[in-house]
Design a protein around this nucleic acid. Structure first.
Lengths: 205, 205, 205, 205
DNA sequence: TATGAATGAGCATTCATTCAT
DNA sequence: CATGAATGAATGCTCATTCAT
């Protein structure tokens, strides 16, 4: 009949069956809109429409808007993490480590403009109650503290510093330079070279 | 004379002071709430109530909520500016300058916890349209670039750096350390000492 | 007693004493704004400011906005009434009467553009509750019915009409032509001549 | 078990008809309330409630209150237009045309009391800005001017008139008589007869 | 699984009116 | 008499979420 005819057509061309397709579409749409418009200016409805889905579908995949945003943040964090892992230097000297991480974060920002900024939206902004234990940036500072401690052990960095404090300083410097570098389209090589030298010199024993 | 006159009036119980008091009350209340809850979780009504005023009064002093927030940001910026001006070192060596500014921003953050973070709320968060030309942090990075250039001229800093890039790096390091220092109640002396040495060493010719 | 006190005051004329200057200013301002913007877009505050007075002063002269509007309507009605009285024809033939009244209302509209339209704002528009007994236009229709009855008595108008119905018809014709004439800047002489002939012919025995 | 239970429930009792019902309900409700209370005393919420819907639903169908009112006006105009079209006389003599149109507008007013008055609410009343080019009444006056011109051509009306002016006069007479006739429950036959004779006589060559 | 019409708590803002001065 | 800062009930509108289909 005409019905089976239609069924056979719809069965293979457009909506591709199966389920996780929708979630992937929603994720892409959510990232796009959260980055472009920010958390508050993005409605679940907008995300669903951008994904080409009905807006009820949004709630099949996320319990609420907040969860969707948190998932976006988590994905971005994970993505950056893997991005950086894949760019670790073979030789773990301080300079190589700094240069590699710097290059990594810089490249990520260039490839995914706005994503880090959006993903770092303070949780205060998305929900007055659930204040997060430790902001993302601070946790990344801890990672740098580890790098510094390791360098101190190897004699590549001065022992006169408190690793935690200096870890935060390095993270801050990198973050700010990467943000501003992306903003102002500065030449990448120059930025990386300057900042690497700056940090290596600062840590030199 | 006039003082005693006022005193006798304000000394009374019920009828409170008069005119420009309201704006001051609103400013105090707005700062408190924007800092505690963020922009979106603060309603004009909350600000007015916190100020002990009817909510219509809010609109006697600000055309809308956005304007109130912008005024708060501007006040905080101005306040920090004056705070820092009053703490400039007598002797303008690089080390003294860094130490003084570092101490200044650190003290300000300690005395006004959360204010800088709130005042730096991205404009994207408060209104998708009116994107600001240059974020506050970036502009402060320019200031540090000036400091660096001056130090280069005096031979106190290496000429091998691009002042703009390094200016952003210094600003980033300071900002991150000050934020995290305020968060974690770290001992102030130690933080200032570490970061000052770190930056001076980084710039050393 | 307080009563006698009040009595002596209320015994006086009405707004009496001192400066009726403010009331006059308010009336001018109210008329201007009600005509230009309509009832709902005009705030007591606007009227007071237009009058060059503080907005509290408004309530010294009117109990509320509605009363002010009603006073404006009444003044306009009275003004038109006197305007017409001063233009009654010496000789009371039907034609002369029609011509004179027509000319009167036309001139009034030209001299006070928008006033009649504003003053005829349906009471439904200004207050859902106090629906007025008989709209202004209908009452004016009654006046025309009187004119028609008089003309019938004199043999100047056909007896075959119901005076009430024809009175409303005449009023409607005049009102519409006057409004549209004012709107379209049509040549006055021609309008008056056409409409007078039209109505005289309609009534002719 | 539970499924069949639900099925039997959903099958007959609670869940009402589906989609485009809402707009129709809103239209009915809006017309009722705009006619009864006027534009300003009718809140979108009232319309929705009158329609038996939540007030968010209102904004699914209209961008704002103004648009809803304008839609009501347009519907009423269209409705009257079709009402009149269906009542055009077979024979287009002046008298028949006048009588038919008169009867039409009179019947419409009787069947839909208050609708014409509400639909003619001046745009100044609903929004100070969007002043409409040509008021409804004036445009209807143009239609009557056409009728008059046609009658002049046929020798059924005197050539001594300006058709535009007389068109407005006829429209005004009809409008006023219809309004007042509806208001005062006057006997319809008599009104139609009087006004038809009045206008035919007025135009007679 | 997918849909989108429906919902109503919640928000920013206005404005007629009061009252201390 | 005059003022204008203060008030808060009321308004038009939005949007995260639900649920019948």
């Amino acid at each position: 009949m005409e019905q089976s005819d239609i069924a056979s057509k719809t069965g293979d061309i457009r909506p591709l069956r199966r389920k996780p397709e929708s979630l992937a579409k929603l994720k892409r749409a959510a990232r796009k809109l959260f980055v472009e418009r920010g958390y508050h200016a993005t409605r679940p409805q907008d995300i669903a429409r951008e994904a080409g889905l009905g807006h009820g579908t949004f709630y099949l995949h996320y319990p609420d808007k907040r969860a969707c945003f948190l998932a976006f943040v988590d994905d971005a964090r994970q993505e950056l993490h893997e991005f950086m892992l894949a760019r670790q230097p073979a030789e773990k000297t301080l300079e190589k480590t700094i240069a590699a991480n710097l290059k990594g974060i810089y490249e990520y920002s260039a490839q995914h403009p706005g994503v880090l900024a959006a993903a770092m939206t303070d949780e205060l902004v998305i929900d007055a109650e659930g204040a997060q234990a430790t902001p993302l940036l601070v946790r990344w500072g801890f990672d740098w503290a580890d790098v510094v401690r390791e360098a101190m052990r190897n004699g590549q960095a001065s022992n006169s510093y408190d690793a935690e404090i200096v870890g935060q300083a390095i993270l801050g410097a990198i973050h700010q330079v990467a943000s501003e570098g992306a903003r102002s389209q500065r030449k990448r090589e120059e930025v990386l070279d300057n900042l690497t030298r700056f940090l290596v010199q600062a840590l030199k024993p």
